[in-house]
Design a protein around this nucleic acid. Structure first.
Lengths: 218, 218, 218, 218
DNA sequence: AATGAATGAGCGTTCATTCAT
DNA sequence: TATGAATGAACGCTCATTCAT
């Protein structure tokens, strides 16, 4: 079973939306702002990502930051959208390869996800997102949009492996597998106690998931 | 297959440490403070749990709060210790029942954990902890202490089921199972999109976990 | 012996540093802040000079004060620098007059210093500085910088009067004279018991100092 | 001329007043409190001498401190009185020695005062007092009481040396000498830039003062 | 597009004080 | 005599926001 790591880690790119007034300078500044804000979020967490600190670490003046993002919420939403869109884009153009068996594709999908977890950005960003989603409906919905899109390939794979199961069961299998992988972030993500054991974790998890789909009896 | 919910959900109790000196009144006040602080943490998150808001929602004056907890860190540490101790206590006196087979005990253990996940406290508290642990070494260590203690019963069960496996493999099996269950918090916890499907999730997960332990080949 | 008071008392002016950027309005606000802070320091002492009180007595909002001086230390340092620079400036352009004998210049120098002591600002400001210098190394160094500059003219005068003495002795003569005058602040400064006797004090002190330099035998 | 240092430095003792309820324990506690408060005042200054810190550094509980000194002002006043009384006592029983000439007694008196200045307590305590006296009439009066008593021996000495001078002139001579010595605290006190030069300062100052008294012409 | 100035609110902390135990 | 509990106020600081330049 192929276990080589994915060629391009997802989520390393920020997809910054265009604006109506398409000045290049402003676009560059917004890029810088979002990149810097994400760095702070990753490094020191949500509450450290203040407007002042973002401006300061950008090397721009405070007034300029509020020109581009009038309120903190504006900044936060565009940041989360940009980060999430980055993850979504990677998923879209990596997973679909028709030359593999469903088992191989399941294996490959899980490799991709688990290989991404030890990255500092993923280990730091998603727990912030999970916590925020509990208190902010906008973030909650946006986050579950992302996960729904991320599970879509799994649905196809599981449907191919188990056409006998009802759709709800297949979806829930996908959910359990996805949740299981997310959960490893806490224990084997960047700088976590079991980071060094990620290889064994991957083997146990992936073989377990394949078995789980293959053998599940309703 | 036994799927009845556990009789007492863990984590609903705060274990507030005694003090060598002090009157009953002070003890009651400290209890109230911690209970209120936890409620705010659960409802509105970490940064909403300010000293002022805790005092205000306690119905006590700010000065009195700082009398009992001189600094926010004092409050936070005693709160986390009290919450975590509550979870640990439940684990300690529920899991050890010698009259069951290892498979039954694994099933029971997972039932216990998964039954707790939809509780509002657990769904809200642990993601906060995961996010905080990324930026606060004290919280990081305390959290992984808790999880290590929570995995201990799993180690016994898996050792009984698979004495042939080396300890590291058994530990990692336990870790994967534990992480998988934690991951469901995000998707099927309180008010989450798949909360209603927790029954099916439990069935898929638990039968999958039992299979995973039973059939794992190094 | 000439005893007419100096034409311009030193230390009545605040030398507020320019900033590279900024509007006139901001400069005026900073001037007002420092002037007000000094007034409070003089009137009610160091610990009364709180950020809140400065803002309030300025008629500006607290947030605006912290905009101009982010921390109290920023404010304090710029204030001390401005006050001290005011004293230094006066010393610089008053003392050097070549048309006088050394004795006349010594007399004139002491006149200048002693005439300044009964001013409320000097009587109040310097004892605060002396107390603070005991607990704050920055203030300690800045204060002794000021005094070193203030003694410089004395060194010249004494060198002219007593070229036979070694430099260390001349410096120490200057120090004793300077210290003696500073000490009168406590007893004959503004609103002090012997304020009314400053004329006699000046006569006794100055004739004594001139004699001391003229007649000192190592 | 005799220049050996005084046998017992003044101001090292706290004279704590008795109370009507003469329990020994309470007296001991008050001693400890005042001693500790003075240490804090000397070490970190006036504003650092808070009730809380005094209690904490005493090793007694906060409530107990407020039992002995109901308000901070109570503590401060008794502390200052005790310290000042300590200095006064030393002056009283050291200075009067009939077997010396007036010049010798003047020398001896100045030796005594100047020898005390480099002590940490004196260097730190008096500048605090000078600053406080500018803003607190009670302290102002008490301080000048102390200095008046301290100058009394000088008046006798100067009267013996210069019976020809009118009393006001003699008093002012005493004042100038006293003020001159106090002023050296700032420059040659404990940890001050010219502390190492105190020997030369003493010689210059004392010979100068003797000359000043001997030769002053109204 | 970018900066400077000003506001109002909230934060954690320290403090002096009063009162019950 | 000593401690615990509670209050109210002020502290320095950071923040998001608005508006003029």
């Amino acid at each position: 079973m192929p276990t080589e790591p994915a060629e391009t880690p997802p989520g390393t790119e920020l997809i910054v939306p265009e604006r109506t007034t398409g000045y290049v300078k402003g676009r560059e500044t917004r890029d810088l702002i979002l990149r810097t804000a994400l760095d702070i979020l990753i490094e020191d967490g949500w509450h450290a990502m203040s407007m002042r600190r973002v401006a300061s670490e950008c090397g721009i003046k405070f007034g300029n930051l509020t020109y581009h993002y009038r309120t903190r919420e504006d900044l936060v939403r565009e940041l989360l959208d940009a980060v999430i869109a980055g993850y979504e884009r990677e998923f879209d153009h990596i997973v679909y390869r028709a030359d593999l068996t469903p088992e191989q594709r399941l294996d490959r999908y899980c490799q991709l996800v688990l290989d991404d977890i030890p990255s500092k950005q993923t280990t730091r960003f998603f727990p912030e997102l999970w916590a925020l989603a509990n208190h902010d409906p906008f973030i909650h919905d946006r986050m579950h949009d992302l996960y729904a899109r991320a599970r879509a390939p799994l649905h196809d794979i599981i449907a191919a492996m188990r056409p006998d199961l009802p759709p709800e069961t297949r979806e829930t299998l996908a959910l359990v597998i996805s949740a299981a992988m997310e959960g490893t972030t806490i224990f084997a993500g960047h700088d976590k106690p079991f980071a060094a054991r990620m290889g064994l974790i991957k083997h146990i998890a992936i073989t377990g998931f394949v078995d789980m789909v293959r053998r599940y009896k309703p």
